[in-house]
Each structure stands twice: as structure tokens, then as C-alpha cells.
Simulated scan of single mutants.
Amino acid sequence: MLKVGVIGLGAIGQRLIKGFQSHHETEIAAVCDTVEERTNEIAAELGGIPAFTNHKEMLDNTKLDLVYVAVPPKFHHAVASDVIEKGIHILCEKPLANSVEEAESLLKKAQDAGIVHAMNFPLNYSAGSRTFERLIKDNYVGELRRVQLKMHFPEWPRPWQQNAWVASKEQGGYVLEVGVHFIQQLQKIFGIVKVKDVQLQFPQDPQASEIAILALLELSDGTPVLIDGMSQIAGKEEIAFTAFGNQGTLSLLNWAQLEGGKLGEDILPLHADDSLTDSLVDHLVKAIKGEDSIIIDFAAGYDAQVVLEQLRKG
């Protein structure tokens, strides 16, 4: 049984706890968060496991095989470095760090340590996004003409994630929180992408994150990639990742739904192949056991960070 420690018990950190709980080869052995009341409450829910408010104390006093780092991005480098120095396998939330330099440092440390280093990019394990990837590789759209990412939010931060860091220019904003998932998918499915031009809009508050982005990127073959992001606008939240080709159009909508059509046809909902649904926890266990696995490692996290920081800085 692999013993897992969780550092960071916000909404994102708690989401994966259920996955570790339900897997027959993993168990949560310790939790840590700076909010003591939250930590004690979750530890009690998990059967009275050890609870900490200092991650170094958790690492020093608990035998762990894997640590999931789910703290805000500003703290990734310091916390993940401490985990790596202990020689413990690591799963880190996205983005890898809060700068390209920090991301590069973590990648080198993890590689030198010889541990499993993984990123939590859940699109790589979901039926919708994996069906999207398969259809692209099966030439559904034909010769690629354009890739487009639309991110529209009536309100940012969204009602369920009202906290200071998600709203901040320093370590938040939807380009970071949402966009990085699709930067990683772009790189995985379509290859190297370069940033050509970025226009950002910010509110009057100098500490607040972006309210609009319009960016032009380019794949290695010259195919344009357009990013259209806006917040504080009328309407419903809409996230659309779309590939336009000379034979058809294919979109992944709001994380999970597929739609598409061939040239001359209407755009209609498409069925995601549920057999492609996979489990990040399953693959982490396989990786730690030395078996074949699908892991989005720190190298992929670094590559995504390079593009992310260019977009965030304009």
C-alpha cells in the first residue's frame, strides 16, 4: 500500500483525495494545510490520520511514498523542493511553479533525484479530451488550418473559487488557472508552439489579474493558434478548444463535451469514447512500481510554463 501525503487542502487539493482513498493500492497517510481547523477536520474525516500545519514537519515525521503538492503556485517551488530533497515521489498541481526559472529548477531537482515527478493535468485522463486527440490523429479535420482557445467568464474568480491568489496578477487569473491546461494539450497534440503577439487588458486594481487576452501563437509548421479570453462579461462561462481543418471542425467544450462536423455539414454533438477514460492515480501507482504509465512529467510542466509566462507577461 502506497502512503500518500497531501499538502494544500483547498478545493483543488481535496478533489484528488477521493481518488487516492478509493484506489486499492493507495492510502492518505497525512495531510497538511496552514489553516489548522481545515486540516484537523479533513484528517478526522480520513480516520484520524496525522494532521500538520507545517509541511516540513509532515515530511520529517511521516513515512510517505508520494506527496501531492496542491498549494498556491507561489509556494510550489519551496514546498516541492522540500519533497524532492526527501527523495519522495511527487505529484504537483499546475502550473509547475510561479516562473520559468522556478520551473526549470524543479525539473532539474526532480530528474537528479530519480523520483517519479508528475503534474495534475486531468484532461490527459478524461474521455472527452482523449477522444478529441484521437480524432485529430485520425485526420477528422483534415489538414489543420487553425487552432483556437476561447475562455469567456462572466465572473473571475468564479463563485466557487473566491480567494485572493486566484484573483491576483501575481499567481492567478484564468490564463494561468484554465489556459495552462490547454497549452499543455496544444503541445502534446500539435507539438511546439511559439508566442507571436499578446494583448492583455487589466482592471484598475494593479494587483488584479487580467480581464482580457487576445494572443496569436504559431505551431512549428506555421499554423496559427488564437487565444481569445475575457472575463467580467455578460453571458455564461464558455471554454472552447477548437481545431479547424480543410475537411472539418472539432471542438472540446467546457472540458468534457465534444462537437464537430465535416465540411458542408452542421456542427453537432459528438460521442466521447468512454473506454478512453483513465485514472491519474492508477498511472501514478504504475509509475512508482516501474510499470508502463501515462505521466505528464515536470518536463511537460516546464514546457507549458515557458508559453504560459509569455502569455501572462504580454
Results as ranks from 00 to 15, higher is better:
112 D>P: 01
28 I>W: 06
287 A>W: 12
51 A>V: 05
170 E>Y: 13
34 T>L: 12
266 D>T: 08
257 Q>S: 14
26 T>K: 08
39 T>K: 01
100 V>G: 03
52 F>A: 08
262 K>N: 07
137 K>Y: 10
313 K>N: 13
253 L>H: 03
286 K>A: 13
101 E>V: 01
213 I>M: 14
186 L>V: 03
14 Q>E: 15
268 L>A: 11
54 N>H: 14
176 L>A: 08
217 L>V: 09
43 A>E: 04
264 G>F: 03
170 E>M: 10
122 P>G: 02
18 K>Y: 10
74 K>Y: 15
251 S>L: 00
296 I>Q: 02
200 L>K: 15
261 G>D: 02
104 E>C: 01
241 F>I: 09
136 I>E: 12
15 R>A: 15
28 I>H: 09
148 Q>V: 15
15 R>W: 07
213 I>R: 12
250 L>C: 12
151 M>T: 07
36 E>G: 05
258 L>Q: 07
42 I>D: 02
211 I>V: 14
115 I>S: 00
120 N>W: 13
9 L>S: 08
256 A>R: 13
10 G>D: 10
251 S>R: 12
151 M>Q: 14
75 F>V: 04
181 H>C: 05
30 A>F: 11
205 D>K: 01
229 G>D: 02
176 L>W: 03
28 I>K: 06
69 V>P: 10
30 A>R: 12
76 H>Y: 02
263 L>M: 14
44 A>S: 14
174 Y>K: 02
113 A>Q: 09
